[in-house]
């Protein structure tokens, strides 16, 4: 999975239109080996963008019935920022159970994991994977892959925001000098102990600076972050 997600993130870097990204988001179904993937974003102006693998019929029906008002996933994630396994949501009400019955009939998995994202300036997005694995299998699955799901959710969100802004230059330019220093040391082949010593910071601090840079660059991992920083000319060795 880790390798597959890394490759995925590297290929999706080049997506430069929201239409193209829409298709790439659907590819995550194969990357994660799940039945469905959903990404839905609402910016501070209320503009929405969505991509999902459900049937168009279910989408139409869902909005016609205003299911977002009873959908425990929407109710449990809106205005929140902690990731949630659907099994932890409140499905006890009759409306919620009836809704789930219809959803499952329409091909939605009865299992799911959702990652609400709070972005800058009031942006909000929700990324979900859903599947039909049994409880026991799903538990093992999420334990093994939760980090990747969170990583993918934020990567897609960042990519969508970049495309919306029209350029990724603005954000990339925001790498601070210290983050550039940290990536430069690693690009030069120093290990973390040597890099942190050279920069007179602890290894813990170095790890967090690198993670911060990775996140800003929308990179899958440290190696990828270094490669991207080199390509963009942010790091020169």
């Amino acid at each position: 999975m880790q390798g597959r997600l890394d490759t995925y993130i590297e290929t999706v870097q080049s997506a430069n239109s929201l239409d193209e990204l829409q298709g790439r988001i659907k590819d995550l179904r194969n990357v994660f080996d799940v039945e469905h993937v959903v990404y839905h974003s609402i910016n501070s102006l209320g503009q929405q963008y969505a991509s999902h693998t459900y049937t168009p019929e279910w989408e139409t029906y869902y909005f016609a019935e205003n299911f977002e008002r009873i959908d425990p996933v929407v109710q449990g994630c809106l205005r929140r920022f902690h990731p949630v396994d659907w099994r932890r949501l409140d499905w006890s009400g009759k409306a919620a159970r009836d809704f789930l019955g219809e959803a499952v009939d329409a091909g939605v998995g009865h299992q799911g994991f959702s990652v609400p994202i709070r972005g800058p300036s009031g942006q909000f997005a929700l990324f979900t994977i859903s599947d039909r694995r049994s409880d026991a299998v799903w538990e093992k699955y999420t334990e093994a892959h939760v980090r990747d799901v969170i990583l993918a959710a934020h990567f897609i969100n960042q990519k969508a925001l970049e495309i919306e802004r029209g350029s990724d230059e603005a954000d990339v330019a925001k790498l601070s000098p210290r983050e550039v220093d940290a990536l430069t040391m690693l690009a030069m082949g120093y290990n973390r102990a040597q890099a942190s010593e050279s920069l007179s910071i602890s290894e813990h601090t170095l790890r967090v600076y690198i993670e911060s840079a990775r996140s800003k660059l929308g990179a899958a991992n440290t190696t990828h972050a270094i490669a991207k920083a080199l390509t963009l000319g942010l790091v020169i060795v």
């Binding site: 425990p72 449990g76 902690h82 949630v84 396994d85 659907w86 099994r87 932890r88 949501l89 409140d90 499905w91 159970r97 789930l100 019955g101 499952v104 009865h110 299992q111 039909r132 049994s134 409880d135 538990e139």
Partner: peptide
């Protein structure tokens, strides 16, 4: 868990089919 929910099956397993 009182705030964030306890991991429980979301629905009767009959729904799984």
């Amino acid at each position: 868990d009182r705030t964030f929910g306890r991991a429980a099956s979301p629905a009767p397993l009959a729904l799984v089919g």
